[in-house]
Design a protein around this nucleic acid. Structure first.
Lengths: 131, 131
DNA sequence: TATAATTCCCATGAATTTAGTAGGAATATC
DNA sequence: GATATTCCTACTAAATTCATGGGAATTATA
């Protein structure tokens, strides 16, 4: 039960972008160096964040990445939902879960409650809270 | 962010043991078949549960496993703490965590809060609640 | 005391996921 | 046209999870 390095990197980068304001886009190189995240790994993470609509990219010279919303509108839940391949506490509550026991599983309600509790908490933290 | 199969197996077995009362020990073979858990994998799980003091084992013929406490005294948190190699939401709050950024990490408080929230919730579910 | 049923212990292997790397095409600025 | 950037696809390495195998130790009972 753990948040991956990818998720933590994503959060860090989003915080870094917040601290920079929304004017000029920040190039990947600068983000990677500043946050000490492997360049190519971060590149793949940024790709996911762009696809999810949390950041926008500007290509070509003087390009880079920029938040698509003000920091107070983006929560930790928004970010981690993108990067964590399984955001569910137990596999049992995954979208693709296909457990034959699900119908009468005594623990399923607990996993659902856990998912909810985690989501509630992560929603409370916005990027603004971190800077 | 997910509870492993091991953890779910452990919970299931503990529930099965609860349902059987504390009298005669239940052999591994029976547990494995009944719960559809690979015999050898379950064996290693039982070993951990014994070491943690949640179940006791009786060796030799007519032996098996038995809870060491009444089902209402054992919570999901007690069980998962044993089986999950990392019970922390983020590696950052692991016992062995040794992050150079920890001192001034803006997200650390969130991970701690998350750990707490998860623990609180899992403590609410006792084995008795599942049967 | 032999036998069968069991837990205990140690080592190994397979599968899956996570983390990271490499190279080049496309795009924009100057 | 040179340069700085994102985008895309594929690959590799490392770690973790999920098991499997074989045999020693222990105990009840016939």
């Amino acid at each position: 039960m753990i948040v991956s390095a990818k998720g933590r990197y994503a959060l860090r980068v989003m915080i870094a972008l917040s601290a920079r304001g929304q004017d000029a886009p920040v190039p990947l190189k600068e983000l990677a160096l500043g946050e000490e995240i492997p360049y190519k790994f971060l590149e793949s993470i940024m790709c996911e964040l762009v696809k999810a609509g949390l950041v926008e990219s500007v290509r070509g010279k003087n390009g880079g990445y920029r938040l698509t919303m003000p920091p107070e509108k983006c929560t930790a839940a928004d970010i981690l939902r993108v990067t964590e391949t399984s955001f569910a506490a137990a596999a049992c509550t995954n979208e693709n879960a296909d457990c034959p026991r699900a119908e009468m599983c005594p623990t399923l309600p607990m996993w659902r409650a856990l998912d909810l509790a985690v989501d509630e908490l992560l929603k409370k933290y916005t990027l603004k809270d971190f800077i």
